[in-house]
Simulated scan of single mutants.
Amino acid sequence: MTKQLKLSEIVPDHLFGKRLDQVLAEMFPDYSRSRIKEWILAGAVKVNGEVNTKPRDKVLGEEQIDILADLPEEVRFLAEDIELNIVYEDEHIMVINKPAGLVVHPGAGNADGTLLNALLHHVPGIGEVPRAGIVHRLDKDTTGLMVIAKTIPAQTHLVEAMQAREIVREYEAICHGTMTSGGTIDEPIGRHPTKRTHMAVTQSGKAATTHFRVMEKYRAHTRLRLRLETGRTHQIRVHLSFNNYPLVGDPVYAGRPRPPRKASAELLAILRAFKRQALHAAMLRLAHPITSEILEWHAPIPDDMVQLNAILRADTAEHGFDLV
């Protein structure tokens, strides 16, 4: 379903000589530049009463702008009183530390009990913001930091910053295999050709870049720090699996556990019981969408990953690196 949007405004003189799409983005900051460009190309924008479908046309100032466009109506979800770990909040944005097991957005098999349902309860009016202010996602069993927009202008600016790769996200992970050094994985990611719920490195996919560095080496595992340039679905999980270093516990991309030889019963038990990908969004840095202040947050490593690191560290200290 859609609803019709009507906007009317006179172009200010100080925007003389700028492109039409740039002018409209400045005049109507509640809407993204990509959406405004779509409206222009679709013939939804009139300049002095005439339809203009050329985003690059220059304006002179004092033109009458009229926009008549269709907006998809947001599906209405129920507000639910679900506890959130709020790291930061002001009138424009919220940063949360998401636990494992919390689905971000309702979908097949998860109609409720999601982060979106929680936001509708905790933030009055956020239902008017597209996707209840969700700017980026974490997989159900990935923990860590997420930023939420509480207003449409904040969301518009955060989405644009994300697309421009201006938001910095760093992750902690534990993978199978012992890496010798850090590096960069620059491989396109798209839908798996036969397993439609999986992602894969494929030349028909979208560009994806993951930087990583080694934090600790264990006998048969590595603790990593990773930074994303892009935000493709399952990006870290797919990139590491493609390089034969899948995440511990990943139910989709890791296959069977790979314990080192002569591993203790305790280590074997922990590896078998680790049923989620060992991945945590540990750091988030961005320019505030309204004030432009540079803000940075850190989320402590969750207990299950702390425990896993500790026993892998102890196993390595006991056996060294020669019995992998």
Rank of each mutant, 00 (worst) to 15 (best):
225 R>W: 15
237 R>P: 12
240 L>T: 07
258 R>V: 07
228 L>W: 09
247 L>K: 02
268 L>C: 11
238 V>W: 04
278 A>R: 04
280 H>P: 00
267 L>A: 10
269 A>I: 06
227 R>P: 05
232 R>M: 11
298 H>E: 14
235 Q>Y: 07
250 D>G: 08
257 P>G: 03
282 A>E: 11
269 A>F: 09
253 Y>W: 12
264 S>K: 05
232 R>C: 03
228 L>P: 04
221 H>I: 02
249 G>A: 07
267 L>D: 03
278 A>I: 01
271 L>P: 05
282 A>D: 08
275 K>I: 11
266 E>P: 01
231 G>M: 03
226 L>F: 01
286 L>H: 06
262 K>W: 12
239 H>M: 08
269 A>V: 02
290 I>M: 12
298 H>N: 13
233 T>L: 02
250 D>L: 04
242 F>I: 08
219 R>F: 02
276 R>S: 05
224 L>G: 05
275 K>W: 02
236 I>F: 04
260 P>H: 10
214 V>G: 10
295 L>A: 05
213 R>K: 14
235 Q>A: 12
236 I>P: 09
239 H>N: 06
226 L>D: 04
235 Q>E: 12
298 H>T: 14
255 G>R: 08
263 A>G: 12
297 W>E: 08
260 P>E: 08
261 R>C: 11
291 T>E: 03
215 M>C: 13
269 A>P: 00
277 Q>W: 08
292 S>F: 13
251 P>L: 10
281 A>L: 03
244 N>E: 12
300 P>E: 12
219 R>M: 14
253 Y>R: 07
219 R>S: 14
288 H>W: 04
260 P>Y: 07
246 P>K: 00
281 A>M: 00
290 I>Y: 01
